[in-house]
Design a protein around this nucleic acid. Structure first.
Lengths: 211, 211
DNA sequence: ATTATCTATAGATCTATAGATAATGC
DNA sequence: ATTATCTATAGATCTATAGATAATGC
């Protein structure tokens, strides 16, 4: 019923919306939805609070917008897994990309973790619409690889979960890792460790799965 | 300076404090510190809001109390790792225990994840005082096992991180997993998958670490 | 007497809006 | 004329306290 008129956004419009969304990513990822305040976002964005509500209808809309933008970025590496590539290489490359995303986009990782941890109240539809189909398709690809004897037989679903878990852990639990690795050589062995683990797991003929 | 008098707690005192802390675990783990309200905790505990503040000095104190209690529970499995046991069995048992904790104590897992995700503002001292020494000790034990040729050589620190990550993932990201496994057979293969992965990784002579 | 609980409300914090003013684009 | 920004503040939500009342333990 209201003003549904879509005008082409001005340059200022675009720039300020971007500034707000970037500030929101900062604040939401650090404090969660409820923990974040418009004041913090406004200060981070360098705009006044009412001005922020000139560009977005409210806190909720800002959060939803940040989350949907995140979804694309987040699915990208899994979508990039090539069914025609060499199976082991494809998966190890995927692991590597996910680990790099943890390093380069920790805010995004934490924002995602926050949302899922709270039960995915706002992201649930996105998960069903976007993630679920991709997940099923990729599971099928991996299963086909295993059936063709090109990868050791494991449950593809838990394989993907374990890749997500291990790589995202470095961003999501950074505060803990910082404490535990404090004063130690600034090792970059996470990548090496994960490559070894998943290579060992997936190299054909390795899994003498008992019982 | 104030009333530091410690009286022995009455039965009602004990019971109500327990009810409050249990309710707080529910609410804090589901919504985070800021997202939780005293109203929710009061309702969940079946007590009035002012009554809750009769037993605890404030929201902050409730949260801190819940977190410190959690710490003991949380460290227990790692503390239980026996330096004199069979290395591979010890670690695989540890993995199994951690996975069972994810199933049986998902609230605790999420409360912990929430706190670390926000940068561990209240837990940082506990991490340094309790977790860090235990972590270092266990890393040394595992390293000794590897040096004795009883386990394949990997970085013990990342081994522990990956065990935490993979097992806790099933509690912390349950909302996502529920969506992705919806309609599928209610598999209990997570345990089997993790056992296979870590057995393959750690069985001596397996790791042909390149480069 | 002491411990526990209730009603009522103060005071702080936060989201959001109203309405006026300044800046920008034809 | 339209778009963008500012000041001031309404209204909702939350934490916490004051002060009275009820329940419990000697």
């Amino acid at each position: 019923m209201a003003e549904q008129i879509q005008k082409k956004p001005s340059r200022i419009q675009q720039r300020n919306r971007r500034k707000i969304l970037d500030a929101a990513l900062d604040v939401f990822s650090a404090h969660g939805f409820r923990g974040a305040t418009l004041d913090q976002i406004a200060e981070q964005a360098g705009l006044s609070k009412p001005n922020i509500l000139y560009y977005f209808d409210g806190k909720e809309e800002i959060h939803v917008t940040v989350l949907s933008q995140l979804m694309e970025t987040w699915l990208d590496p899994l979508a990039g897994l090539d069914p025609k590539g060499d199976p082991l290489t494809e998966i190890l490359t995927y692991v590597q990309r996910k680990l790099e995303m943890s390093r380069d986009l920790p805010r995004e990782s934490r924002l995602f973790a926050n949302e899922i941890l709270q039960g995915a109240p706002r992201m649930d539809p996105h998960l069903r619409a976007d993630l679920k189909p991709l997940f099923d398709a990729r599971c099928a690809v991996i299963q086909a690889w295993m059936d063709a004897g090109k990868l050791a037989q494991v449950d593809p679903r838990h394989l993907i979960f374990s890749i997500w878990a291990t790589t995202q852990h470095y961003a999501d639990f950074q505060a803990q890792i910082d404490v535990l690795l404090e004063g130690q050589e600034p090792t970059d062995t996470a990548a090496q460790f994960l490559q070894t683990m998943f290579r060992n797991l997936l190299t054909p003929g390795q899994n003498s799965t008992p019982a």
